[in-house]
């Protein structure tokens, strides 16, 4: 499935200065894994020992993946995955 991953502006230098990266995947976790293969500098920023970092939120078509199936959430063609820093609000 072709999925578009939106890169938060401050992290674009670590993703070839791209606003979004298109990958082929069947789950959110796979999509992020593909992103990290294409842009290895993203790996350490998103993951810590294989776990998504505490202050990283992932949204699939504006829905928080924690309310779906986390990294196992299936994705379909045309889905948009957004990486959003959790340190906001309040």
């Amino acid at each position: 499935m072709a999925v578009k991953i939106q890169i938060p502006t401050p992290l674009r230098p670590h993703a070839g200065n791209l606003a979004s990266v298109e990958v082929i995947a069947i789950t959110v976790g796979e999509a992020l894994g593909e992103l990290c293969k294409l842009h290895p500098a993203m790996e350490q920023r998103l993951f810590d020992n294989g776990q998504l970092r505490r202050f990283v939120n992932i949204f699939i078509n504006d829905e928080d993946m924690r309310y779906l199936e986390n990294l196992a959430t299936p994705v379909k063609d045309g889905d948009e995955v957004a990486i959003i820093p959790a340190v906001a609000g309040g």
Partner: peptide
């Protein structure tokens, strides 16, 4: 607040290494 990385004073709220709050 997570890794202790230092930043100059700028309008940014999270660490570019681990997304931790500044």
């Amino acid at each position: 607040r997570l890794c202790g990385k230092l930043y100059p004073v700028t309008p940014v709220n999270f660490c570019q290494d681990d997304f931790g709050p500044l």
